[in-house]
Design a binder for these strands. Structure first.
Length: 812
RNA sequence: GGCCGAGUGGCGGAAUGGCAGACGCUGGGGACUUAAAAUCCCCUGCCCGCAAGGGCGUAUGGGUUCGAGUCCCAUCUCGGCCA
């Protein structure tokens, strides 16, 4: 109606566990269940009359779709991240550089990153075989999609690996299974950490709510500090370096012990024999706990002494090395220097195990206790044989000690992120197959793009083998294949992609959904991108939205998209709760089924009520009586036009001139509704339309032109009723082709205004003045009011304030 | 524990620093009807008062301002995310 070309699509992100679980339980192929559910959702959505462009419908489980998900995976597999250029680059450049191929020499010579790897390759030796092995390892280590053995959450109940975010309170968040343990497995990972800084930086380019941005910042968790090397003091590992990350290098002199995470690779080597048993027992205990349990502040601290010591580089002190589960292998280096005086967790731990606490920071306020003081202050007791930071404020102390460490080769400035690489494989059937094979001779080999889509094998048994291998391992015919590189025997990758994969790029497919030659046509991409408005639940704040941004930036680097960010504006619609104010759930029995609401009140009432309930972003409870309310409004709007007795146009509807008041209200309503739509204030837009209908329904003459304008502004909210009224008003073309009504500022203007008159801020009277009256005459009318004179009680006003169109305040 | 957000009638919620409670629901009264539903009209924040009228009110306490639901400080409660 406003003449914009709007792409308003709908699609289905349909890979995932529920359909697979159902398949395991019933033997029904997940694609059948998925199709059935899609059909139900589509029917319900169509019933509500949303004007989605169904020609653009996508389904992430459709081979014509996931072919391109797999294609993006291959692009990731065939790229490395070049920090000196801060972008992803085709892996062939790395290969050429390491092999010193003349091809693209000037290109690879200009990368400092490639230069350092070339140097490493030269140092690997001159033996061609050694050299080749080094190149091969380096190339596979630097890919953006890579394999690694990682301790992952293994759910005994699901027989599947869970992502960190699927484990809540040490339980499986999907099915509530209790038996979740850490276990190392071969996994695929995507190097999202390479993009950490850009994902952080570019948040300033998008119009999202501050809270969502903040969640992403916290999730990425960038912190600046230093890496410091301590030396192992005793045993066979003596002299080896134990690296820690700390955000507080200024507190190094207060380090009284060290803590390794139980999983740390050095634990075995450094543990003294008399402590071996205790350490082993503690490690297996820790494997069962979730990070939440382990790092919770109110939890009683636990830990075991390894029997070994480390040397503090700043003062040569020998300090004991412990292991404790409050240190996580996945954060920093998996080891910390403990400064109990100025870290809450270290302090608790030291108290419990009677470890020394040394003050090294003086709080700015001398009344504040330094025990457990974690903020900035002034360094004290921080003088060693070679360096001193005593007397320096925290900021300067950090800089000085870090510079000293770097100079002595004992450490360096470092930035650490909480963000981990994205665990990108699942041991499941119902997901996109990862398009690589494992060849005995060539290792991991990507299948050629022309062989995509790589289909899932048809199977009858969806249960995973108890070995922990994915279900696809059972499909032997599919599994055994030939290597695309050497033609020898090879096995297909049996892991599938996680549910997030398909939804990472679906917005791009909407722009060109039927293209069989490419994922999307670059010209169409340039025309439509970026997504102007993205509406979704806040539950996607960190995962989907971060993954999607990561893929988009990667595609940008490789030249496949033209924008650095995919979603310009993001709005999080609030959740609708059940009538009891609780989250809707089958078990609570408070679920509202749209089908039955539509049968009783119609689709327009359902739509209108959802918009009228309150602000779009707020969480709000459903209320059937509220539906009844908007239903009444629609009925009234209907009767304003159609006579219920005759079923024809009401006699009050005439080709008449509208009176001044009606016309004014109409133009005010058009203005209000139009403005509210821009700001997503649907609830107040509907309220304005209610006021309009309440007025017009009372009129004995209802000018047809006024009704027509009203029906047009009602249409986006209540399309079915509006179309029908439009037709009853004598039109035989859909109103969707009509222009949005314009309002006339002059006609919308009030001619007379009622102003409040306050004496010392309290309302004493109301006066009516002409809208264009100047301040002086308004003042005069206000001061002439009897009630005002009475309230003044003979006193002379000190000041009289006139607020245009609002009120007069008389100060005495 | 940290970060973010929010606290307004019986309920959902309105309110560019300018008349708090728009609009809707609920409840009450009335009209129409044999009756009911639907519809229409009136009332509906709390307290005092027969009334006219007055007082108090946006979680709590303070502050800025002619004027604060709105801005600032502190506290409490709830929600979300993280640990």
């Amino acid at each position: 109606m406003k003449g914009f070309n709007v792409l308003h699509p709908m699609g289905w992100d349909a890979f995932g566990l529920p359909a697979e679980q159902y398949a395991i339980d019933t033997g029904t192929h997940p694609s059948i269940t998925t199709k059935k559910n899609i059909n139900t959702f589509r029917r319900q959505i169509k019933m509500l009359g949303f004007s989605y462009d169904w020609d653009r419908e996508v389904d992430t489980t459709d081979p014509a779709y996931f072919r391109w998900t797999q294609w993006i995976f291959l692009k990731l597999f065939n790229s490395y991240y070049d920090p000196s250029w801060a972008k992803a680059v085709d892996i062939s450049l790395l290969e050429d550089a390491l092999a010193e191929k003349p091809r693209r020499r000037s290109e690879w010579e200009s990368s400092a990153f490639l230069a350092s790897w070339r140097k490493a390759a030269q140092e690997a030796g001159n033996d061609p075989q050694q050299r080749e092995a080094f190149v091969r390892k380096t190339v596979s280590d630097l890919r953006l999609a890579y394999e690694n053995w990682v301790p992952v959450w293994w759910c005994e109940g699901c027989k599947a690996v869970l992502a960190n975010e699927e484990v809540k309170d040490g339980k499986c968040d999907r099915k509530g299974h209790q038996n979740v343990v850490r276990r190392p497995m071969r996994q695929w990972l995507l190097r999202i950490t390479a993009y950490a800084d850009r994902l952080l930086e570019d948040l300033k380019l998008v119009t999202w709510s501050e809270s969502i941005k903040e969640m992403q910042r916290n999730w990425i968790g960038r912190s600046e500090g230093a890496e410091v090397d301590f030396e192992i003091a005793e045993g066979p590992a003596a002299g080896q370096k134990l690296r820690v990350f700390t955000t507080r290098p200024d507190t190094l002199f207060g380090a009284t012990y060290m803590v390794l995470s139980p999983e740390h690779s050095l634990v075995g080597k450094i543990t003294a024999s008399q402590q071996r048993e205790a350490v082993h027992a503690y490690r297996s205990e820790a494997a069962r706990k979730s990070e939440l349990e382990r790092t919770s502040l109110d939890k009683e601290k636990t830990g075991v002494f390894t029997g070994n010591y480390a040397v503090n580089p700043v003062n040569r002190d020998k300090i004991p090395i412990w292991i404790a589960d409050y240190v996580l292998a996945s954060y920093g280096t998996g080891a910390i220097m403990a400064v109990p005086a100025h870290d809450t967790r270290d302090f608790e731990f030291a108290q419990k195990f009677n470890l020394p606490v040394i003050q090294v920071v003086q709080p700015p306020d001398p009344k504040v206790d330094w025990h457990g003081f974690v903020d900035d202050g002034t360094s004290v007791n921080s003088t060693g044989p070679d360096v001193s930071i005593t007397g320096l404020p925290t900021g300067e102390a950090k800089t000085k000690i870090t510079a000293w460490l770097a100079e002595k080769g004992l450490g360096k400035k470092a930035i650490n992120y909480k963000l981990r690489d994205w665990l990108f494989s699942r041991q499941r059937y119902w997901g996109e197959p990862i398009p690589v094979v494992h060849c005995e001779k060539c290792g991991v080999v990507a299948i050629p793009e022309t062989a995509l889509p790589l289909m899932l094998p048809e199977v009858t048994d969806y249960t995973p083998p108890a070995t922990g291998e994915p279900p696809l391992a059972k499909a032997t015919e599919w599994l055994n294949t030939v290597c695309p590189q050497c033609g020898g025997p090879a096995k297909r990758e049996t892991n599938t992609m996680p549910q997030w994969a398909g939804s990472c790029w679906y917005y791009l497919r909407y722009m060109d959904p039927k293209n069989s030659q490419q994922g999307w046509d670059p010209a169409k991409e340039r025309y439509w991108m970026p997504v102007d408005l993205y509406i979704g639940g806040a539950e996607h704040a960190v995962l989907h939205l971060l993954y999607s941004r990561f893929w988009h930036k990667f595609l940008f680097d490789r030249g496949y998209v033209s924008t650095t960010e995919p979603f310009t504006r993001l709005i999080n619609q609030g959740m609708i709760l059940g009538e009891d104010g609780q989250k809707m759930s089958k078990s609570r029995g408070n679920v509202v089924n749209p089908d039955s609401v539509i049968v009783e009140y119609g689709a327009d009432s359902m739509r209108l009520y959802e918009m009228f309930m309150g602000p779009l972003e707020a969480m709000k409870p459903w209320n059937m009586q509220g539906v009844q309310g908007v239903y009444r409004f629609l009925q009234k709007a209907w009767r304003m036009v159609v006579n219920e007795e005759t079923g024809r146009l009401d006699p009050a509807v005439r080709d008449a001139q509208a009176d001044e008041e009606t016309l004014r209200l109409l133009h005010q309503t058009i203005r209000k509704v139009g403005g509210d739509v821009e700001t997503f204030g649907f609830n107040t837009a509907i309220s304005a339309m209610m006021i309009f209908v309440n007025h017009l329904a009372r009129q004995e003459v209802r000018p047809k032109s006024v009704l027509e304008s009203f029906v047009l502004i009602l249409a986006p909210f209540s399309p079915h009723v509006a179309e029908e009224l439009w037709s009853r008003l004598g039109h035989n073309r859909s109103l969707a082709h009509e222009p949005w009504p314009q309002y006339d500022e002059e006609l919308a203007r009030e001619k007379q205004l009622e102003l409040a008159v306050q004496v010392n801020g309290k309302v004493k009277d109301r006066i009516v003045v002409a809208a264009e009256a100047d301040d002086e005459s308004v003042k005069a009318v206000a001061l002439a009011s009897e009630k005002v004179i009475a309230a003044l009680g003979g006193k002379t006003p000190k000041k009289v304030l006139v607020v245009k169109g609002r009120l007069v305040n008389i100060v005495v």
